[in-house]
Design a protein around this nucleic acid. Sequence first.
DNA 1: AATGAATGAGAGTTCATTCAT
DNA 2: GATGAATGAACTCTCATTCAT
Lengths: 219, 219, 219, 219
Amino acid sequence: MPDEDQRPPERARRLPRAVRERQILDAAVQVFSQHGYHSASMDEISEVAGVSKPMIYTYLGSKEDLFGKSIQREATRLLEAIQAGVQPDLPPDMQLWHGLRSFYRFVAEYRESWTVLHRQALTVGGGFAAEITAMRTRAIELVAALVVAAGTRKGLGEQTEFSGPGLAAALVGAAESLADWALDHPEISDGVLASWLMNLVWLGFNDLVEGQVWKPSEG
Amino acid sequence: MPDEDQRPPERARRLPRAVRERQILDAAVQVFSQHGYHSASMDEISEVAGVSKPMIYTYLGSKEDLFGKSIQREATRLLEAIQAGVQPDLPPDMQLWHGLRSFYRFVAEYRESWTVLHRQALTVGGGFAAEITAMRTRAIELVAALVVAAGTRKGLGEQTEFSGPGLAAALVGAAESLADWALDHPEISDGVLASWLMNLVWLGFNDLVEGQVWKPSEG
Amino acid sequence: MPDEDQRPPERARRLPRAVRERQILDAAVQVFSQHGYHSASMDEISEVAGVSKPMIYTYLGSKEDLFGKSIQREATRLLEAIQAGVQPDLPPDMQLWHGLRSFYRFVAEYRESWTVLHRQALTVGGGFAAEITAMRTRAIELVAALVVAAGTRKGLGEQTEFSGPGLAAALVGAAESLADWALDHPEISDGVLASWLMNLVWLGFNDLVEGQVWKPSEG
Amino acid sequence: MPDEDQRPPERARRLPRAVRERQILDAAVQVFSQHGYHSASMDEISEVAGVSKPMIYTYLGSKEDLFGKSIQREATRLLEAIQAGVQPDLPPDMQLWHGLRSFYRFVAEYRESWTVLHRQALTVGGGFAAEITAMRTRAIELVAALVVAAGTRKGLGEQTEFSGPGLAAALVGAAESLADWALDHPEISDGVLASWLMNLVWLGFNDLVEGQVWKPSEG
DNA sequence: AATGAATGAGAGTTCATTCAT
DNA sequence: GATGAATGAACTCTCATTCAT
């Protein structure tokens, strides 16, 4: 009877701290994304992580801390994934297109990451909602800057400066909503998703800055 | 039996059930919208409603029941508000425009209703998310039908049948996101909000069905 | 089978809040005095009180709150017991004597109260130690004032002003220590205990102010 | 085996067991005296000692063991300090005076030792309270023996045999309480402290055995 | 000899929910 | 019809203690 599968029933072997922390964060993201912050229990997270509860507290702090660190890690992942897909020397529409493709690729590959960031992060009352909101606000401002810049180039500065932020919020919402929709339609590739949004949004905006304006034909 | 001063000592007067139920639902919507489902406590709801806790259970059932009924009432309100603003014999773009104006008017007037529907309803793990999602899905399908119908009229049936649902999801997301943004910018009127969205989205879509297509200029 | 002892096994019948609060405080004093603050568990207190834990939290707050309120009630009892025994129009020594008798009577009758006040109240790190210490300090200052006053009357003002506070601390400690000793000797009456202390302390002090001073007879 | 630089990388050098034990006990006394038994954590003790937790368990056993050994060491120190100051061939009052001076000198120099012995040792429910109490009882008996002996020499045997133990308890309490008071008044020398107590207590007792008795002047 | 890694057990606290009046 | 009184059950978090290296 050599060293077969006779080891103790897979009970937590000694692993370096970094490895454990990753395991715990993985489990946390999974459980938080499934149940949301409040319904997730530290018991379940510890079970999924294959680790006892005290380890979580020792390594990553309170439930709130754990949630914050989960959010932070996934947000970083998402941003890095998008940045990795964007080449800064391309024209704006190409940058946006590449960014969107990377975004939808990420969402497809890391559903749980996206779920935690998009849906669960808002349910906590504390500073996390603020943090996430701040991140989203930054994204919106980025898009708004694009909008205003483009509008200015077309000589429509004043108008787009006024409507820019609102439009940017709408665009970001459209991208997010499409991402959610795509979760239920995995057969649609990230290229197609990005194209849809570009057609909808870029052409639409394009026309807008060309001077075309939709007006209600009656009261 | 005249209206003497013979009433019980001014506390908890006998009120018809319907009135009590409305009081309770009002309180529930308020508290749920402020704190979210999980952080809302039955104690606070009963306090805000001016009614003892057992009454809530007698009249409206468990916390989950109460939340469901709150959601349902607000959703009905929202739908009725939108339908009241739309005249079915107008062309599609006008219908959408009027619908959007009604929507933004409602959001401005009943912040709490919108908050509960949009933000808090997703945080519950049980059947409510499903219920809300279903309602949203219905909205998306409605928009999708518009998209497909318009596309078909332009002879682009196959293409829009394929992309229609996704686009519709994006549009709905854009409208919602702009609604959230508008909560922080009450100086923007519902007409302006709706116009922005129409310009962005309808013109964009218009071009799309006119045959204009954005294509990536390189890999 | 009439209404014998057939009632449900003595399970918490509805009682007015005030009664329950007293029950809980009684139990708290008992358990705190037995095990000390840290080792006392809310579970045991609730068991002894014949009440579920949530009631304690509803009526009296956290463990620390409960401890504080226990201390406060017992301290008040002790002070009232002492004040009730003292007649303010008697000469100082008689006042002290009556006060001591009341004190020892109280300790004998309410062992647990005394234990909580004397031994357990110091073990908590928070504000309770301060509160108790303050109370003790007030007692010491009172005695010190007596000492200084008596000394001044004898023309020894400067000397007793210097040594008064320390002497007072010693006297209070003597009284407390004798109280503890008396707990193991219930056959000694409060009158005897008070007399011992008076003889030891009053006469001693008396001689001191008469000018007699003990001096070391060599290095 | 010269003293090369071949030692393990400068952490936790091999030290003889006795040294390690002293380090740990020093840390334990310090932490116990600061936080009390319950609030002291093995983590903090190990940190202060500069030693890992398993070492503590290996060398000194459980937390209770550690506390017991801390108490024991400090008690021994105190007793030795007092005995060192007392010359057994002196008359009783001189013995007491020297003993008190040594006692107050010790308290001033080893505050933590005294704190652990006097305040923290009582807060534990187990056998330590007993151990400490026994030690204190021994001290009281010693003093009682002095009292009785002196009383007997004056021909008041019966009376002092009856009141001796109680008086001794009071004396010890006075000495302790004055020690606590002195912690906040370091400018008072041990000689002055001891003198105060001698004047208060010895003269008082002296008069007592001379036949003077304080009596209540009325009911 | 020495320790980082790991946990069992139990504490305080809160909340949705229900009785008895 | 209406409620103050009461609780079961669950959750987060901590700590003394030990294993495997």
